[in-house]
Write a protein that binds this DNA or RNA. Sequence first.
DNA 1: TAGATTGTTAATCGATTAACAATC
DNA 2: TAGATTGTTAATCGATTAACAATC
Lengths: 205, 205
Amino acid sequence: MVNQIPHIIIGRLPLYLRALNRLQKDGYEYASSRELGKLLDLSAAQIRKDLSHFGELGKRGKGYEIEFLICKLNQILNTDNIWKMIVIGAGDLGSGLTRYKGFANRGFQVSAIFDIDPQKIGKKIGDLVVKDIRELEKFVKTNKIQIAVLAIPAKYAQDVIDDLVDTGITAILNYAPIYLKAPHGVQIEHIDPAVHLQKLSYFLK
Amino acid sequence: MVNQIPHIIIGRLPLYLRALNRLQKDGYEYASSRELGKLLDLSAAQIRKDLSHFGELGKRGKGYEIEFLICKLNQILNTDNIWKMIVIGAGDLGSGLTRYKGFANRGFQVSAIFDIDPQKIGKKIGDLVVKDIRELEKFVKTNKIQIAVLAIPAKYAQDVIDDLVDTGITAILNYAPIYLKAPHGVQIEHIDPAVHLQKLSYFLK
DNA sequence: TAGATTGTTAATCGATTAACAATC
DNA sequence: TAGATTGTTAATCGATTAACAATC
């Protein structure tokens, strides 16, 4: 296996995957670096360079076989089978993520949703029933969950992260608009709509 | 005014702002580049370099006055007053964003939510009532809206973008997991949880 | 074969860091 | 003044691009 791929490249692989899925759905069988680049607003050279880190994945004269490349990228990203994950917080966002149909074909599945609010515990959301947060540890350990999605208010986020880390979770997708501390080895990705809006507003007026 | 600040720097300003707000709330008055760097996992030198693009914002020997810097960054990002925005799609995500209380103090306010589904039109969400998508153009023009948030399924996204662009919207925050075409001058930011999950999963196992 | 497109090298470009004089 | 931290220059590092031989 190839070692030490720069993070910036890893960050682009999901984008390649998304574009390839789109092309496949549109009926294409091959995609050239030029076509992909156009779709993603990247240079063809960059796409070839990125992909070359993982072997010779293309066919000279033809481009990249879409099916094969999707498969390969999923292998690299470890999304070639389904990760079970849990959602913390059964508000609008947590509920939406739990009901969201778009995860399954990209390697993820919500297998439980938790809340602390007795009013929400027991409520049905999609195919799942909201569990009491006190069952968190047992559930994570029994089901060997590795990914958690945090959809709770900022003020509770650090406490919950600490609990999650204790249970053995090592990957967290955080929707709370706050910086969170976690020990080395625990990956956190942040999604904060206000950050994106602020970037947009810079270009306005 | 300073010209042509690299995008990569603009992208970090909202993060600085988030950290500064946090520090202010915790009672601090000054923050040094070293402290900020620690909080954000960036080097102190980088933070000083970034901020120096916008003038001499710090005090030698003391650091940056938090209140002043927050103010300044908001000026730079154009978030020193409230942008009115619209949400398209009254599903879980659109509803959640509409009800979300965290936008106001960061420069944004949802001023209408639209859907195409007669079942959803007229429904109350937070302080707003879901409007018919056919009222979109009139509303945007009357209220001089410049920012739209897209929270609809991927298959409708391009059509809606085209409509939005026609009404004069120039900034779009897109939650549909798909690449969207828009004319030069229309900024689109993408939020796709699966992309973040795929990055996380690369580091798992 | 001719045309197309990859994989890869070397050149370029831009971003980050180290270091330190300036100064609060 | 002594200590601290900025703002900025120059050096370093890494990412992107241009170009082209290899090859389907």
